[in-house]
């Protein structure tokens, strides 16, 4: 509690989770999860399926209320953060119905809905924000294409553009590298660095360790609670990893885990 008194420190923190517990009808999904994420950093959230990654995301988005503990985003409550459009969620590719009749432009425009009026009529500034976001992910030329006609990597970029257009300060990415080609991967890596320079913070949920090593400044290992947290090089010890993955040691070279998936 004493730790967060200093206001300068609070402002510089994007995410501040303090002993967060979440349970679903008595089943504990997450306990004592504490975490501080600075402005302008890329953080990997690593754990097995069912380790509480998506529960943690849900808690950050305000979908589940912690039964204990507290979450602050940019120093204010999750509800306020929602209203401020502070948190953007970038779904997995199979997370949305891609045969939906919307264009790439429409999808990115959805990032602006929260700042629009009641009828969601886009203003000039909204259109400019959408165009800029599309430019950053190199999808301007495909903006009128239906979202379903895009490749997996392009679709991922479209949803990233939506988060950028939203001007969110915290981006939650769910398995961003699954089914993505090398070109998109490079583009996304460049983009992450740009976003970090804009002092936005990116939280990447994944069980793909090699990408974490390449892209993330800090890493959080979770298995129902935060097992380890800190600089990627320090946290990525074989001891920590075997704790995260329940005693199974991942391949140190490829980073893949033999039993996962």
């Amino acid at each position: 509690m004493e730790l967060f008194r200093n206001t300068d420190e609070v402002e510089a923190l994007r995410i501040q989770a303090d002993q967060v517990c979440v349970d679903y009808n008595g089943t504990l999904a997450l306990y004592d999860a504490s975490l501080k994420l600075k402005a302008g950093c890329i953080c990997g959230l690593v754990g097995m399926n069912g380790a509480g990654k998506s529960t943690f995301f849900k808690a950050l988005m305000g979908f589940v209320r912690p039964s204990r503990g507290k979450i602050l985003i940019n120093g204010s409550s999750v509800t306020t953060a929602q209203k401020d459009q502070a948190v953007a969620y970038v779904p997995q590719n199979d997370g949305v119905d891609c045969s939906f009749p919307v264009s790439v432009w429409d999808v990115v425009m959805m990032g602006r809905y929260g700042s629009m009026n009641f009828l969601r009529v886009p203003r000039e500034s909204d259109k400019r924000a959408v165009f800029d976001a599309l430019e950053r992910v190199e999808l301007v030329s495909l903006r009128n294409r239906p979202i379903g006609s895009l490749s997996g990597g392009q679709r991922k970029r479209a949803f990233l553009a939506r988060a950028i257009a939203q001007r969110a300060s915290v981006l939650l990415l769910d398995e961003p590298f699954a089914g993505v080609d090398i070109r998109t991967e490079k583009l996304m890596a460049d983009l992450f660095v740009q976003l970090r320079q804009d002092s936005r913070s990116i939280l990447i949920s994944t069980h793909d360790l090699s990408h974490v090593r390449d892209f993330c400044d800090v890493v959080v290992l979770i298995n129902k609670t935060v097992l380890a947290y800190g600089e990627t090089s320090e946290v990525f010890t074989s001891e920590n990893l075997s704790m995260t993955f329940g005693g199974m040691k991942p391949d140190p070279i490829s980073g893949s885990i033999s039993f996962d998936e």
Partner: peptide, 22 residues
């Protein structure tokens, strides 16, 4: 008519809709 955009977003991506406070 009033809720057409919100309902469309709700059908397409309810998670995003919720995360921006809808």
């Amino acid at each position: 008519i009033i809720y057409r955009r919100d309902l469309m977003l709700y059908c397409f991506d309810p998670t995003h809709a919720r995360s921006i406070g809808i």
